[in-house]
Amino acid sequence: MTILVTGATGQLGRLVVEALLERNVPAEQIVAGGRNPAKLAELAQLGVQVRSLDYSDPASLREAFAGVEKALLVSGNEPGPRVAQHLDVIEAAKDADVKLLAYTSIPNADTTTMALAADHQDTERALRNSGVPFALLRNGWYLENYTEQLTGYLQHGSVFGSAGEGRLSGATRADLAQAAAAVLLADDQEGTVHELGGEPFTLVDLAREVSTATGQEVTYQDLAEADFAHLLVGAGVPEFFAKILADSDSGIARGELLVEGNALATLIGRPATTLGEAVRAAAGALATQEA
Rank of each mutant, 00 (worst) to 15 (best):
T2K: 15
I3G: 05
L4W: 07
V5S: 02
G7F: 00
A8M: 10
L12C: 02
L21K: 02
N24Y: 03
V25D: 00
A27Q: 00
G33W: 04
G33Q: 06
R35C: 07
K39G: 05
L40R: 00
L40P: 01
D54V: 00
P58E: 11
R62H: 11
R62T: 13
R62S: 14
F65S: 08
F65P: 10
G67K: 07
L72R: 01
G76S: 11
G76I: 12
L87I: 05
V89G: 00
E91S: 14
A93Q: 02
K94D: 12
L100Y: 08
A102T: 01
Y103A: 11
Y103K: 10
T104L: 12
P107E: 11
P107I: 08
D122Y: 06
E124W: 09
R125F: 13
A126F: 05
A126C: 14
G131F: 08
V132P: 01
V132I: 01
A135N: 13
L136M: 13
R138V: 11
L143I: 12
T147Y: 03
E148D: 15
Q149V: 04
L150H: 10
T151F: 05
S158E: 14
V159C: 07
V159Y: 05
F160P: 04
A163L: 02
G164L: 09
G166F: 01
R167L: 13
R167T: 09
S169Q: 04
S169P: 01
G170K: 01
G170R: 03
A174R: 14
D175L: 09
L176C: 08
L176F: 14
Q178R: 12
A179C: 09
Q189M: 15
E190F: 03
E195S: 10
G198T: 03
G198Q: 03
P200K: 08
F201D: 05
T202P: 07
V204T: 14
D205G: 06
V210Y: 07
S211A: 12
T212Q: 12
T212F: 13
T214D: 00
G215I: 10
E217G: 12
D222T: 09
E225K: 10
F228K: 01
A229P: 09
A229Q: 09
L231F: 14
L232Y: 02
L232K: 09
L232T: 07
P238Q: 12
F241K: 12
K243M: 09
L245G: 05
A246V: 10
D247S: 12
S250G: 14
G251K: 02
L257C: 06
V259D: 13
V259Y: 06
V259M: 08
A263S: 13
T266L: 06
I268F: 06
P271C: 00
P271K: 05
T273E: 06
T273W: 12
T274H: 03
L275T: 04
G276K: 11
E277K: 03
A278P: 07
G284W: 03
G284M: 03
L286E: 13
A287V: 05
Q289R: 12
Q289L: 15
A291H: 14
A291R: 15
